[in-house]
Simulated assay, not measured.
Amino acid sequence: MSVELIAAMHRVGVEGIDDTQYSPGEFRDNDEVVVQDGEGNTVHAPPPAAGLASRLEMLAKWINQPHSDPNHADYLHPLIKGIALHFALGYEHPFRDGNGRVARALFYWFMFKNDFSAFRYIAISILLRNAPVKYGRSYLNTEADDLDLTYFIDFQCSVILRAARESAVSKK
Rank of each mutant, 00 (worst) to 15 (best):
K81D: 01
L5R: 15
F112N: 10
I83M: 09
F27S: 11
A123G: 09
A50Y: 15
K61L: 11
L59C: 02
N41C: 06
I160M: 06
S68C: 13
R104G: 02
Q21T: 11
R104I: 15
F152G: 07
I126Q: 11
P70T: 07
D37H: 08
Y139W: 14
F87T: 01
H93C: 11
I6N: 01
F87C: 12
I6L: 05
F110N: 01
Y121T: 02
A53G: 03
C157A: 11
G16A: 06
D31P: 06
A163Q: 03
I122A: 03
D31L: 05
E92F: 03
L76T: 14
I160D: 01
M9K: 04
Y135K: 03
N71D: 09
H86G: 07
T142V: 08
L89N: 04
D29Y: 05
F155H: 07
E4K: 14
S2M: 08
P47S: 13
G16P: 10
I153W: 08
V43T: 13
G90D: 10
G100H: 02
E166D: 15
Q65F: 04
A144M: 08
N30K: 00
A8E: 00
D115Y: 09
Y91K: 02
I160E: 03
H86Q: 11
T150R: 09
H72D: 10
L79H: 11
S54T: 15
T20Q: 14
Y121L: 12
R11F: 04
D145L: 07
N130T: 00
G51N: 02
S117I: 06
Y108R: 06
I63M: 13
H67F: 09
S158R: 09
F116R: 04
D148A: 12
D145Q: 09
H77M: 07
Q36S: 12
A123R: 00
M1F: 12
T20F: 15
A131Y: 11
R104E: 03
N71G: 12
V12F: 09
V14N: 08
M1Y: 08
G13Y: 04
